[in-house]
Amino acid sequence: MSSKEWPLYEVFIRSKSGLSHRHAGSIHAADDQMALDAARDTYTRRNEGVSIWVVRSSEIVASDPAETAAFFEPAEDKIYRHPTFYDMPEGVENL
């Protein structure tokens, strides 16, 4: 191994316009342009994308899986945020 490992990039692909970018996988590259080219060759050999984002994995800030329950707890007990919480009177339509 003559040099140190290239940075890891996460790859996000928009499969067609109108849809969001979605995580596809990751690749190693020496720089941003190489990351884009390698992502294209690795993840879109069959027209799977019309747009690619690559971002250095080290730049991603993620929530901690061990803290999942506590982190998402604030949404747990607010069932009134869902339309199904409300019983509509019989006979009322289009609501």
């Binding site: 191994m1 490992e5 890891l8 996988g25 990751s26 690749i27 190693h28 060759d41 690795t42 993840y43 050999r45």
Partner: peptide, 30 residues
Amino acid sequence: LAKIQDEAGHGLYLYSAAETLGVSRDQMVA
């Protein structure tokens, strides 16, 4: 040629998936 290129791609998908477990690419190649 396209098939062989796919095999390279499959290797890369799998290496990157394996890296999520905390092993480095260089280590696997080594």
